[in-house]
Nucleic acid binder design. Structure first.
Lengths: 123, 123
DNA sequence: TCGGATACTGATAAATTTATCAGTATGGAT
DNA sequence: ATCCATACTGATAAATTTATCAGTATCCGA
């Protein structure tokens, strides 16, 4: 992970929260895992816009943050699956709230430059 | 505002939410305004780590997003005050939830590089 | 032994956000 | 006329996050 130079208040709950799962793909990944897409290849299939590399980096950070954990089978084909920890599950209500707020407040987002894509999140 | 090149899913509630008040200082500013610090100079006094310029930029974006609005008196000294719109107020419960989640999950944040500072948020 | 499927990594570039610096403008008091 | 307090702005740099590209490694089955 990047070594920060600008200070951050780690006593602030919101800052901690943002650091923990505030990335571009993290909510999406948490939601997808919760829905049963646990393997990296599955995650990539449902989050098509993010490359496997990017998903992998995010998974690594979520793992470090104690939000997901990994189980590896040494069989064939290579099998890895990610699961939400208890901490990870405790995030779901927040995501649900954020999602519903966002949907209720779509109108203000006058960002006409992009097309919509399929995403897992959007609970 | 910056003209984005990478696509974003504006049908996703979470993405919209993040765009709306997901910046580094936005939650902090929203909280401070809610607490009655309404003038730019006041905001800077309680959010000492951010320069007036930065606070101003964030206010501008919050205004565009319809989260705060501005009232200007033409008296002396120059008087401007920002208030939360209804939409802005509807964010407060989310911030509270994020804040409490963060405080309950401090432990995982092993970011030893920074010292704590005073911040308004941390409801 | 080769190739396909899966998971993962290192190095680097591009995009985005945040910060810095040096200003402008207003009105009143000195 | 000058200065102070307040709010604001333009241009640019620095920091941070996200993406890209080209790999490595393992296992099995043809």
């Amino acid at each position: 992970m990047y070594q920060k130079k600008l200070p951050e208040d780690l006593e602030c709950g919101i800052t901690i929260t943002m650091r923990s799962f505030g990335g571009k793909w993290k909510p999406c990944i948490i939601d997808a895992i919760d829905k049963g897409f646990r393997r990296p290849s599955e995650l990539h299939k449902v989050i098509t816009e993010a490359t496997p590399r990017v998903i992998d980096l995010q998974l690594r950070e979520l793992e470090t943050a104690g939000i997901v954990y990994k189980e590896t089978g040494s069989g064939f084909p290579l099998y890895t699956a990610y699961y939400l920890t208890e901490k990870g599950e405790s995030i779901l209500p927040i995501l649900a709230l954020m999602n519903s707020w966002g949907l209720q407040n779509k109108s203000g987002v006058h960002d006409l430059q992009h097309q919509k894509k399929n995403r897992v999140i959007c609970i």
